[in-house]
Amino acid sequence: MKYLTTTLALLAPVHAGLRFPCSTLTFQRLDPVVEPGSSPSSHVHHIVGGNAFNSSMTGDVATRASCTTCQMADDFSNYWTATLYFKHPSNGSYHRVPVLPVQPLLGGSQGAVGGLTVYYTQFDLNKDNLKSQPPIKTFPPGFRMTVGSPTASSKPHVGLRYQCLTGQSRGAEMSDFPTKPCTGGIFATQHFPACWDGVNLDSPDHQSHMFNTIRSDGFTNAPACPSTHPIRTPQVTYETVWDTSKFNSLWPSGTPNPFVWSFEGTSGYGTHADYMFGWKGDALQKAMDKSECFYDGCGSITKQAMSKASQCTVKDFVGEVTDGWLGKLPGMAM
């Protein structure tokens, strides 16, 4: 996925799939996949998507949502990750790191507020490679999955990466946090598996019903799905820009990385993400059946202005402060 902006420009005629922005919906300690019914959950998440989001979500969430922070108007799915915090090297206090819209989408997403970029790709970014692949089958209502784990203590699997933004350059991919300040912020990517067992909407670990055949890089040719997970689904990917630049002056030269995930993840290995499917009807399937264009499903999907999408909100279910200088991370003991 290195230098994806340049790659997309060079391969524009052969893209297959979707790419679109979603504004931030909320920052809260809720996790209806890993900790359903818990309010609050263990750590703060950055959440985008439909306003049906709450602590416990089952069935067809698209039928219960009335708006979405995503550009695709029929996408009431929810997408969320852990939240990045800056830990002050001197006094140990924490401050939530702001989120910026992903740079390559700024020109086409005026009105986006924070959020992340979502990809649904077919096999990879080259439509010619689809000819030898089985048809893409989209997820059914009630489907959910996760990728990564906050307890990971070693290099995460392919697709969970960081890049240090400098100007228009994203730099090399890394499996851990950058070791020096990034003038443009920290770019985080979470790439989900794309092979489904075809039966289970979830699994006890929220991952076993899926299988990842990619071994080298996120946006590359994916080998065939195994017999245990024979259904090829869209490859779902998130991209987030954490605006760490405002804290660079507080990072003393030569000292360790001061950024932590909201579960006190001082190592970047714990990066993870959750997905809750919520597309209306067959809107996503229609887009995945197209292979001649990228970004908007060949016009098969209705888009809304990001200024409208950004007005979609949910209530604060937990009622705690997650921003500003904090003596401890929300949910964490002193």
Rank of each mutant, 00 (worst) to 15 (best):
Ser56Ile: 11
Met57Phe: 09
Met57Lys: 01
Thr58Ile: 07
Thr58Phe: 02
Gly59Ile: 03
Asp60His: 09
Asp60Cys: 08
Asp60Leu: 05
Asp60Trp: 06
Asp60Pro: 13
Thr63Trp: 02
Thr63Lys: 15
Arg64Gly: 01
Arg64Asp: 07
Arg64Gln: 14
Arg64Trp: 03
Ala65Met: 07
Ala65Asp: 05
Ser66Asn: 14
Cys67Val: 14
Cys67Trp: 14
Thr68Cys: 08
Thr69Glu: 04
Thr69Lys: 03
Cys70Asp: 03
Gln71Trp: 02
Gln71Met: 15
Met72Arg: 12
Met72His: 12
Asp74Leu: 11
Asp74Thr: 13
Asp75Leu: 01
Ser77Gln: 02
Asn78Arg: 01
Tyr79Phe: 15
Tyr79Val: 08
Trp80Asp: 15
Trp80Met: 12
Thr81Lys: 05
Thr81Cys: 06
Thr81Glu: 02
Thr81Asn: 07
Ala82Cys: 07
Tyr85Gly: 12
Tyr85Ile: 13
Phe86Gly: 08
Lys87Thr: 13
Lys87Gly: 04
His88Phe: 13
His88Arg: 07
Pro89His: 05
Pro89Cys: 04
Pro89Ala: 06
Ser90Ala: 09
Ser90Tyr: 04
Asn91Gly: 05
Asn91Met: 09
Asn91Ser: 01
Gly92Thr: 11
Tyr94Asn: 07
Arg96Ala: 11
Arg96Phe: 07
Arg96Cys: 00
Val97Gln: 06
Pro98Val: 10
Pro98Gly: 04
Val99His: 01
Val99Ile: 14
Val99Cys: 04
Val99Pro: 00
Leu100Val: 00
Leu100Ser: 14
Leu100Glu: 12
Pro101Glu: 02
Val102Ala: 04
Val102Thr: 15
Pro104Phe: 14
Leu105Val: 10
Leu105Ser: 12
Leu105Met: 14
Leu106Cys: 01
Gly107Thr: 11
Gly108Gln: 10
Gly108Trp: 04
Gly108Cys: 03
Ser109Glu: 12
Ser109Gly: 15
Ser109Val: 08
Gln110Asn: 04
Gln110Thr: 09
Gly111Pro: 07
Gly111Leu: 01
Gly111Gln: 05
Ala112Tyr: 00
Val113Thr: 04
Val113Gly: 00
Gly114Lys: 03
Gly114Glu: 00
Gly115Tyr: 03
Gly115His: 08
Leu116Asp: 00
Thr117His: 02
Thr117Pro: 02
Val118Lys: 01
Tyr119Cys: 06
Tyr120Ile: 00
Tyr120Thr: 03
Gln122Pro: 01
Gln122His: 03
Leu125Ala: 07
Leu125Asp: 05
Asn126His: 10
Lys127Arg: 14
Lys127Tyr: 04
Lys127His: 10
Lys127Cys: 12
Lys127Asn: 15
Lys127Ser: 14
Lys127Leu: 00
Asp128Pro: 00
Asp128Ala: 11
